[in-house]
Design a protein around this nucleic acid. Structure first.
Lengths: 191, 191
DNA sequence: CTCATTTCTTTACATATGTAAATGCATGCG
DNA sequence: CGCATGCATTTACATATGTAAAGAAATGAG
């Protein structure tokens, strides 16, 4: 149902009928199987998508092959490498489906075209950018100031039930610790 | 010279004469003495400013009184608690002058008024939000993936000469390590 | 210039957490 | 059913880094 997409944008900020119908024309339905990538490292991002069902991780891989799960996107949400789309640089943070996903995707250039001279869409984009900024800032402060146990407890509140849907080692990577350490924390809590 | 402010915005994204003159009307000159706050924790942010000369730190304090220097702003730059301004929530990340500073400040509501229905200013705001997002994301990835020594070397490139202007313990806090550990790193490099 | 204050470095020690490897457990396929 | 695979946990050990305290160096005020 494209209704979910419409509702999501309209919920971010109320939009006119005209803009809602313009927007709905550029999105098409697609699916991602568990393990499939929405975007890889090194590509130039071209698409944005609305995640209708499922879970996607955004992760970074360093030169030693070590991974860091930067963000989980849990439906309903917007996916796509925002950094690559706006900077026009090669993507550094890949996005991969952790469960089967249903998405509505759109070429980003079409969104850019729509916002050319359109105050309302420009405003929607500004607010989406601001929301990304706010959630990034929140995670950064958590990573800097809180113990892994506290971050674990925040994750549980923020993504209820996610632990049942994805492996522990992805959670550990999100928290910035080893699976061993997460196991110790869980052990301590269960004590 | 307000010219620096004009040039800074115009350099972010080319603006019309009309918008430039509208913008310049809302900014007034001010100074911050070393140690003074531009905004404190717990306040509602009301102002944004262009930092013409000097260095400002944005820092977070946790419940134990421990500080984390999230960002350094080195002129020319924009300061102000962007998170509080856009979320309308109490500020969590204070901003304090680390040297004497010259600034041009403006009430944020006036910027918001100017962007009401104004595509060009809305677009400038979107791009500023995107730039904040990009630099936040960069720092987050660095913190997660790199050793403190590597982060130290990036800091030196990004803020040339900053080590001569502010105490080492502020640098350590920015890197997310203790002054002791920073001293060990410097010792190792100088070896 | 001199003294007081602040900052930086160094040392000793405690501790958190990573790595590697072994074990146990569950899931699903042939 | 029974084996193979992937995942979680546990242990032992190594190491990075924090804390606290002391001393050295730099800075600034009078």
């Amino acid at each position: 149902m494209m209704n979910n997409l419409i509702a999501f944008f309209n919920n971010t900020i109320p939009l006119s009928e005209k803009v809602l119908s313009l927007m709905s024309e550029v999105f098409v339905f697609d699916e991602l199987k568990k393990g499939e990538y929405f975007i890889r490292k090194g590509q130039f991002a071209k698409e944005i998508a609305f995640l209708e069902t499922g879970i996607v991780r955004a992760f970074y891989v360093n030169s030693d092959g070590k991974e860091y799960n930067k963000t989980f996107f849990s439906a309903p949400s917007i996916i796509g490498s925002y950094a690559s789309l706006i900077s026009k640089q090669k993507n550094t943070v890949a996005q991969q489906a952790l469960t089967n996903c249903q998405i509505w995707k759109a070429p980003f250039y079409k969104i850019e075209e729509l916002s050319e001279g359109n105050y309302e869409i420009e405003r929607l984009r500004r607010i989406i950018a601001e929301n990304y900024f706010l959630s990034n800032e929140k995670k950064e402060i958590e990573m800097a100031m809180l113990d892994a146990d506290e971050r674990y407890s925040i994750l549980q509140k923020e993504y209820p039930g996610i632990e049942l849907k994805i492996p522990q080692y992805h959670i550990a990577s999100y928290l910035g610790i080893s699976p061993t350490q997460l196991s110790r924390i869980r052990n301590k809590i269960a004590r």
